[in-house]
C-alpha cells in the first residue's frame, strides 16, 4: 500500500533577494516517510537550516511544492500554518529557546498555548512528559538553574507536548558536550523507536550516522548521504558513549538519565550488539510497522 509520506518536497527552491539572488535551495526533492529518522547533514551555509525552516512551515519555498501528510501547505494561510506548527510539527533548537523567566513546566506548557484546552490537563501532560525525559525533580526550576543537557531535555519535552507528527531538530547537540549530546541523541533514538518521525540537521557526519537515513546537502543541493560517506566510515553509536558518561557524573544527571532512557530504546541498547546503527534501523522498522 502506497502510504502518504509524512513530508514531501518536490522541486523546492528557495532564493533570497532579487538582485544577485542567493539560491539557498535548488530543486530539492525530499520524501520523509512515517516513522523515519532522517539526518540532513552538511557544512555551514549549505542550506540545511533553510530546508528545515521550510519543512517546519516557518518559511515558504520560492518555488516547488511541499506536502505535509498529503496536504499542500503552500495553500495555507498564516493561522492555518500556525495550527499546523502547533499541532503537528515540533522543533528542537540548538540554543534550546527556553523562556528564561518561566519555570520548566511552564516552558513545556507553552507548546499548547496556541491550542485551546484546559490548563490543568495541559499541566498534567507537561509534567508527565517531563517525568518521561527524566526531569520530574525540576518542574519549578528556572532554565538558568539547569545544565545544558537538562535544558535540551526541557526543549524536547516541550516539542513532544502537543505536536505528535514530526520532530524537527536543528543541531540538537550543538551546544552540548559530547557525553551530554549523546544522551540527548539516545533520548531521540528512544522516541524514534516508539514511532516518532524525526528530521535532524547537523554538520556532524558522525551524529548523522545515528539516524536511520542520511541525506547530505551542499550548496543548496541535496544528495543521498551514503554517496558522500560510506556507512562504514563511521563508528556505530556505542563507540560514542563514553563510559564515564554512562556511569554518571559528566553532566550531573547522565547516570539517571541513561538509565531512564535505556528502557525507551529497547533493542537499541548502547553497549550491546555488534552493529548498533543497524540495530536502530531494525528496531525503528518494527516499531513503525507496529504503530
Amino acid at each position: 500500500m502506497a502510504e502518504v509520506a509524512t513530508l514531501e518536497l518536490a522541486s523546492v527552491s528557495r532564493q533570497y533577494g532579487d538582485d544577485a539572488p542567493i539560491h539557498a535551495l535548488k530543486n530539492v526533492d525530499l520524501r520523509v516517510e512515517r516513522g523515519e529518522w532522517v539526518a540532513i547533514e552538511g557544512p555551514s551555509g549549505s542550506g540545511k537550516s533553510t530546508l528545515l525552516n521550510i519543512l517546519g512551515c516557518l518559511d515558504r519555498p520560492t518555488s516547488g511544492s511541499y506536502l505535509f501528510k498529503g496536504l499542500d501547505v503552500g495553500a495555507l494561510g498564516d493561522r492555518e500554518r500556525g495550527g499546523l506548527r502547533s499541532r503537528h510539527i515540533a522543533f528542537v533548537f540548538q540554543s534550546f529557546h527556553l523562556l528564561a523567566h518561566r519555570s520548566v513546566v511552564e516552558n513545556v506548557m507553552l507548546a499548547e498555548v496556541y491550542q485551546r484546552g484546559s490548563r490543568r490537563e495541559r499541566r498534567a501532560r507537561a509534567e508527565a512528559i517531563l517525568d518521561r525525559v527524566g526531569l520530574s525533580h525540576r518542574f519549578d526550576y528556572l532554565p538558568s538553574k539547569l545544565s545544558g543537557g537538562e535544558r535540551q531535555r526541557v526543549a524536547i519535552a516541550r516539542a513532544l507536548l502537543g505536536s505528535r507528527d514530526v520532530l524537527l531538530c536543528d543541531e540538537p547537540t550543538g551546544n552540548l558536550d559530547t557525553a551530554t549530546g549523546l544522551a540527548i541523541m539516545e533520548l531521540l533514538a528512544g522516541l524514534h523507536a516508539e514511532g516518532l518521525t524525526i528530521v535532524m540537521i547537523t554538520h556532524s557526519p558522525e551524529l548523522a550516522m545515528i539516524a536511520s537515513r542520511q541525506v547530505r546537502i551542499v550548496d543548496g543541493e541535496l544528495s543521498d548521504g551514503s554517496s558522500a560517506h560510506g556507512l562504514s566510515d563511521y563508528a556505530p553509536l556505542e563507540a560514542w558513549v563514553p563510559l564515564e558518561a554512562a556511569d554518571g557524573g559528566a553532566d550531573g544527571w547522565p547516570t539517571d538519565s541513561l538509565r531512564l532512557v535505556g528502557p525507551l530504546i529497547e533493542g537499541t541498547r548502547v553497549r550491546e550488539g555488534p552493529a548498533h546503527g543497524a540495530d536502530v534501523e531494525s528496531s525503528t522498522g518494527s516499531d513503525a510497522g507496529g504503530s
Binding site: 496536504l71 492555518e80 500556525g82 503537528h88 498555548v113 516508539e194 516518532l196
Partner: peptide
C-alpha cells in the same frame, strides 16, 4: 497517549487559536 505519534494522515488543519485566559496569562508572564 505519549507514544501515540503521527496518528493519521492529515486531511485538514485547524487554525491555531489562543484562549483569552492563555492570552492574559502569557501577557502577564
Amino acid at each position: 497517549e505519549l507514544t501515540d505519534f503521527d496518528p493519521d494522515p492529515l486531511l485538514r488543519v485547524d487554525a491555531s487559536e489562543m484562549s483569552p485566559v492563555d492570552l492574559a496569562d502569557e501577557a502577564s508572564a
